[in-house]
Design a protein around this nucleic acid. Structure first.
Lengths: 216, 216
DNA sequence: GCAAAAGTGTTCTTTCTACACCCATGC
DNA sequence: GCATGGGTGTAGAAAGAACACTTTTGC
């Protein structure tokens, strides 16, 4: 068995959530080297006999006190010179469920204007964003950022925020309903204007609805 | 710093190639416990100060003596009980460039009927196949399994083999040409029947042509 | 001249896109 | 009664699917 003796293994998690009608990401301080404040992605060393997913879950609890969230492995980065391997996940935190524990000096930032990040974390964040956008286009993952029940306008808003473009209301509704991944509930939500029907994600829906292919 | 002291780190590579009009995968023996022969995915320990991609490249050379191939990270598996982390890549080896070195007792198997595999390698293989099929549908990655120049029929064949379904010749040609990822060369290939024009992949083509979305 | 593979267009159906007005409620 | 967001349908354009015959070569 060659080398690989004293390799450090860490898990980092990119926490996405909707706040103030923006997609935001949770970051933690990485010290202040020369006056400028540096930030980094939240993470954790992988403890002995802990699995990678478990460790990612530990991060969720540690940083936002939240069990259960959509979690997906993003990529594994090897830093040869540092003898460090970083397995990166991203998580989607439903609106409201993100307290961002005060004892940890973490802070939410809009994904469009993150602060200066250590190492290649900015690149990782960009990649995560690309993957999230891509995933949103062919799966129903958008619901993971919303509470259990939501209106169609809220859902459309979520899509618009993440994709960064306006969508047509009628077309959006027609397709999302045709895709058969959400169902109406008997409830409505009041507020300003006409009350809106509440929908919920159909747990029995197929997770990955197949997109039309490019090269059939 | 918690734990993570004596973690083993390995890279495994799933080598795909077309042989005998089938998609095949290279496997290596894993001993013969009780008479039945067991196989595994080729791999390597990550040597000190070697990057993950480098290590995957070392695997390519070690197992099929091939530098340069399409290589993509698939997934990272953590085996908590074994204190082992396995970063898995898959590679697409162009037809012909796979000698499967004789000194290593490796062997090609059709992906549809692999032998018994150790650990969760069968599951990994299935996942790789799914990812490859999926990728084929929205990118031009099929070319990576063909030689530099190829006929449209060969290309269509490649797609049919991997996707496991027949495609319409005229529709296939129309779309693959419209996608603007291949270009004709001045050459032809003879053989039985009418000679066919040779095409090549356009290196300047955008790698990921965007598929139509499901939820716009 | 015939076997074998290459090459080529059209029609019909489905899906996409763009677009504007009435509805239900709170104040 | 009016401001506010919720909800609904259609027509033209684009893309997809299904389909059969002619062409070029080697033997």
């Amino acid at each position: 068995m060659i080398g690989a003796g004293d390799i450090q293994l860490e898990v980092r998690v990119i926490l996405f959530s909707l706040r103030d009608r923006q997609l935001q990401v949770l970051l933690v301080p990485a010290g202040e080297p020369q006056g400028t404040s540096l930030w980094q992605l939240p993470g954790n060393q992988v403890a002995q006999f802990r699995s990678l997913e478990e460790t990612a879950g530990v991060c969720l609890i540690k940083y936002i006190g939240c069990r259960e969230a959509y979690l997906e492995q993003l990529y594994t980065y090897g830093y040869a010179e540092k003898q460090l391997v970083s397995v990166v996940y991203y998580a989607l935190i439903p609106e409201g469920e993100h307290s961002a524990k005060k004892d940890i000096l973490s802070q939410w930032f809009p994904v469009e204007m993150p602060p200066i990040l250590v190492s290649n974390h900015a690149e990782i964040l960009q990649y995560a964003l690309r993957r999230l956008r891509y995933k949103l286009e062919y799966t129903a993952v958008g619901f993971e950022l919303l509470p259990d029940q939501f209106t169609l306008s809220e859902l459309q808003n979520t899509y618009e925020i993440i994709l960064g473009e306006k969508l047509d209301k009628r077309n959006f509704r027609r397709r999302i309903l045709r895709a058969d991944v959400i169902e109406p509930t008997p409830h409505q939500r009041g507020g300003e204007g006409r009350p809106a029907r509440l929908f919920r994600y159909r747990p029995d829906a197929v997770a990955e609805v197949k997109a039309r292919r490019l090269f059939p």
